[in-house]
Design a protein around this nucleic acid. Structure first.
Lengths: 332, 332
DNA sequence: CTGAAAGCGCTAACAT
DNA sequence: ATGTTAGCGCTTTCAG
């Protein structure tokens, strides 16, 4: 059994209160007794029991992170960013994979509350009202990453997805492409990713073009979705370019093109989204919208830790910068 | 403030002991009083405080997972597998990124202990004696994933890395390749990945070949390492094939080959290792050794949960099956 | 079948 | 400057 504060107190010949004092560096403790206590701590290899401390202080120094799925290329980066700053401030993270399943999310949130996490970083492909209600009911400090809600009731860190998609589509149009397709999430879902469709739509309109439903494919964001998307679209159409709402989909799209004997970018320009690690390794290297994934995690965690410690947030709604990175999947 | 067990007791007109009994389904509780308690629980939306429970029971229902870096393509899969089974058994996971830094690892392990995790899943690219000593000293139930130690003092789940690398290399040789290069980790590091070099070496010897130091490149496992490896090797040598100790390195190698005007697999066969998601999306699709990443995580977590609950492990050292998956980066 | 009370390991008044 | 003590919310003997 590990040593407890009592053992240290006995060893040092002082009371547990004094041990607690040197542990937490509060009040004034006589240098000599402090030394005695420190020696005892070292001798017993004592380490405070944080669970006990948490029960008393009502703070656990742990943060919950809810993601749809760490296996998705997007999330590991943001989790890493979040964990790095958590670590700096002596917080740990409890990672939860929800698969964007509402019930699973609710259950995780409740458990996180039971375990008294100090706060939660919430990422999801769809932010339902029920979740908001629950967060509210549980009074769980949370910051949203990747999504946000209108009204700004909850702090968030995002990029301007619509504008980014607009820029991407515009870029494709400016390269002289007439028939620009879209592969991505259904637009009616309440989440950040869906807004990319709106950006696509607006760019077309602003360029005097109409959205051709035959050039739009709604699916998920995986390679298979890009692959299927191209196959479906090309069944009855010809295209000059595709804007894919994720890099994975873009890779799948390029593979489908290749399987049909079409070259990227010579025959069809393809743009991705996110700038996942693999985007620069894939052949051809993806031209894409770089989302600062690591920063989204670290900024989100910074905000959360501030909120947890009741420090004011200068800015409640962080909108981070994205970049259009030009590589080889779009003609120069 | 959330309701506590006291509030429920008051609401139901019983003692907290009785509430605790229905909460934990122990002893016999009169059906009527049980109903009263359950009603009170529902009315107050009561949920037990797990921190308090943990302090009492000395079990937190949380497991620490130590990985070098979730951003690495290999780990998200195993973390996902681990979290899925943890979730089934009502455990949560605290995720820690160590960057394979010894000091960071030690500190994380200590904190995990302070937070009273019930056990730890340990993954690292190098398993130092100091870590073993610490685990021992802290009496922290641990299962090793991806690595193991001789003597089998700690439970582990691995694949036979040497044999897998042997098979991979042999496969390359059997395709008629004479000059087979190797790109991977330094062989002298005490970890699973390094054993792949031994398999490479043995396959060559068994085929009556010698290891040509000029065809061996020791670096890390990232795309850049594969890329650099090829450039260095080809400076003074010609090759027929390369076995890379990771898929990422294989992708980098293929890119380097392409930049040099060499085609894969027509001019050079390339094999990867792991069968990461992207391996089947990359062009050409990677022929590789499939490591059951998800299963390694889930099996590891299953073992750990058993150990935590003092159930005997039938088998202490799980060696999972790997597969050689034939795709397009090696000639048929 | 139910209640009273001790105690998990710690912090934070409150005393001295 | 240091000690005593209550109490965080729960589980679990021990009585009754």
């Amino acid at each position: 059994m590990a040593a407890s504060i009592k053992d240290v107190a006995r060893e040092a010949g002082v009371s547990i209160a004094t041990v607690s004092r040197v542990l937490n560096n509060v009040d004034v403790v006589n240098e000599d007794t402090k030394k005695k206590v420190q020696d005892a701590i070292k001798k017993l290899s004592y380490r405070p029991n944080i669970v006990a401390r948490s029960l008393k202080t009502q703070k656990t120094k742990t943060i919950g992170i809810l993601v749809p799925d760490v296996s998705n290329q997007f999330y590991p980066e943001v989790v890493r960013g979040a964990e790095d700053v958590a670590n700096i401030y002596d917080y740990n993270i409890i990672l939860c994979n929800s698969d964007s399943d509402l019930e699973k999310e609710k259950e995780y949130i409740r458990v996180l509350k039971e375990k008294m996490v100090d706060g939660m970083l919430y990422m999801s492909s769809s932010l339902e009202g029920e979740i908001l209600d629950l967060i509210d009911e549980l009074e769980l400090k949370t910051v949203l990453v990747e999504t946000k809600i209108s009204g700004g009731k909850l702090p968030s860190v995002t990029i301007d997805n619509k504008k980014a998609a607009y820029d991407a589509t515009k870029y494709l149009i400016d390269k002289g492409n007439k028939k620009v397709a879209y592969i991505g999430l259904k637009k009616d879902r309440n989440n950040a990713v869906s807004k990319r469709y709106n950006g696509y739509e607006k760019a077309l309109k602003d360029s005097g073009m109409e959205v051709d439903p035959g050039l739009v494919y709604f699916g998920d964001l995986k390679p298979a979705d890009g692959y299927n998307g191209i196959n479906v679209i090309l069944e009855n159409n010809e295209i000059d370019a595709v804007f894919c709402a994720s890099d994975e989909a873009a890779m799948g799209a390029i593979n489908a093109l290749r399987d049909k004997g079409l070259r990227c970018p010579e025959d069809v320009d393809v743009m991705g989204f996110n700038d996942v690690n693999m985007a620069a390794v894939f052949y051809p290297k993806l031209t894409t919208i770089a989302q600062p994934m690591y920063d989204m995690g670290s900024v989100g965690m910074r905000m959360l830790i501030k909120a947890v410690n009741n420090k004011p947030l200068e800015d409640n709604q962080y909108v981070l910068q994205y970049y259009l990175v030009e590589r080889d999947s779009v003609k120069k």
